[in-house]
Design a protein around this nucleic acid. Sequence first.
DNA 1: AATCCGGGGAG
DNA 2: CTCCCAGGATT
Length: 378
Amino acid sequence: MPGPTDPLLAWYASRARRLPWREDPPSDPDLRAYRTLVSEVMLQQTRADTVIEYYTRFLEHFPTVEDLARAPIEEVLKQWAGLGYYGRARHLHAAARAVWARGVFPRTAAELVHLPGLGPYSAGAVASIAFGEAVPAVDGNVRRVVARLTGQDPAPSSGIRQVEAWVRSRIPPDRAGAFNQALMDLGATVCVPRRPRCADCPLARECLARARGIEASVPSSRTRTPRPLEQRVAVIWAKQGAVLVVERPGPGLLAGTWGPPDGPIAAGESPEEEAVRLLAEGFGVRSRAVERLGCVTHAFTHRRWAVDVVRVDARGAPEARGWTRFRFLAPDQARDEVALSRLGRKVLETLEPRRDAPGPSARRRPRPHGGREPGRLT
DNA sequence: AATCCGGGGAG
DNA sequence: CTCCCAGGATT
């Protein structure tokens, strides 16, 4: 007798997203698990479209769990640079080392969840996709899909458990991986947060939220706390075409990534004054502000930064004080040789605007206190 | 239970 | 622009 979720698997068979980590799963279970692990950690808090290029490049650099385990963390962060949540890269690296030391991949979700960086979702995803274990993998998509199917708004904490129980009771024992991925794909492409496309949904007939006309308002959205805007300054110190970039110390924001040095602007201070002070206190270097190159904004989870970029002139050799390491690199080199954060990239782009960027109006916004045209290296 | 971690897409 | 999305670790 057909189960109520058969239409879902039928839909998935024809409408599954084509994603690199789904192509040609290797017959070696450990290699299969490794690829799944990399993709699932990258997919935490990150959309599939964004992950694709990172995943492909990452596997070219680290084709096996051994390659990743033996690599220095700096190489791993370089491949991760721009993807965000850099703690994930450290955890993934540590997980690879744990698996490598162990000699074989943990085969069950109950064991996988003890690897660094793997929680209930990721452990369930790897176990079901790579090993076929019949366990739930409840991410934000699945949570939303099940909430609508059942017409129940999941509570913030206990809600996940109920969704997991629902999935567990319906998961086909021999199709666990496809079932979990089908739920996720449905949430990503059809059962989307706002204005779900119920006309395209294979489960619309059994959807209770749909029956009650509340599909657009379930699950309820959490109230978000506004993110404070912090004023900061970044310093461009160029010597013969090479720009000072520093490694941001951890733990904390952007730990382990690189970029031109930056710091807060104290109330009442100007970006130029703070830039000079930053070089003096952070690197023991006397400098003078030459020009303001622009202002870049960057949003984190709990705060936003407005970073004024100031080019300075200085002589002599810096000494790293508050920062762990520094180098002088041309912007192109910085992109290739260190883990340049997205913020660091934006700051460097005030110096060398992209040639293929749209017109001047769509680019850098000099904003409120007046900016200037981008400068050139001397 | 609350807070800390980036970045990007849709509207 | 503004809103909105999406797991795990830590305390």
